[in-house]
């Protein structure tokens, strides 16, 4: 009797949904926009799949059908990673407390 590794992954998935559920409820409503941009950035970790895909070609021909899709996915995910984290950074830098800025 052996457990299919799929079940382990499914367990991780289900537990992460629960973690996400509780963590997101604790996010303050005023930061919901940064929440969306940061989730955007982190979901672009899909880039790891894109990197593996893009190296599907042989050393003789870098570009074949599947590596081209991989390269395209790298560009898209990279836009999101850099764009997402930086725009979140920019937004979060604007949230200030009272007193700190009395111009």
């Amino acid at each position: 009797m052996e457990i299919d590794p799929f079940i382990f992954r499914l367990s991780i998935f289900i537990l992460s949904i629960f973690v996400g559920y509780y963590v997101v409820w604790s996010v303050t409503p005023s930061l919901h926009t940064p929440l969306m941009s940061v989730t955007n950035a982190i979901s672009s970790v899909i880039i790891v799949g894109a990197i593996i895909a893009s190296l599907a070609g042989s050393s003789l021909s870098v570009f074949n059908q599947s590596s081209i899709f991989g390269f395209l996915a790298i560009v898209l995910a990279a836009i999101n990673i850099f764009g997402g984290f930086l725009v979140t950074q920019r937004m979060l830098a604007m949230y200030k407390k009272k007193k700190k800025d009395k111009k």
Partner: peptide
């Protein structure tokens, strides 16, 4: 891809969007 980072992140983002 059997990738834990993607599974965890996907679940986090999925539930985050659902809650919003």
């Amino acid at each position: 891809l059997e990738n834990t980072a993607l599974i965890i992140t996907g679940a986090l983002v999925g539930s985050s969007g659902a809650i919003l």
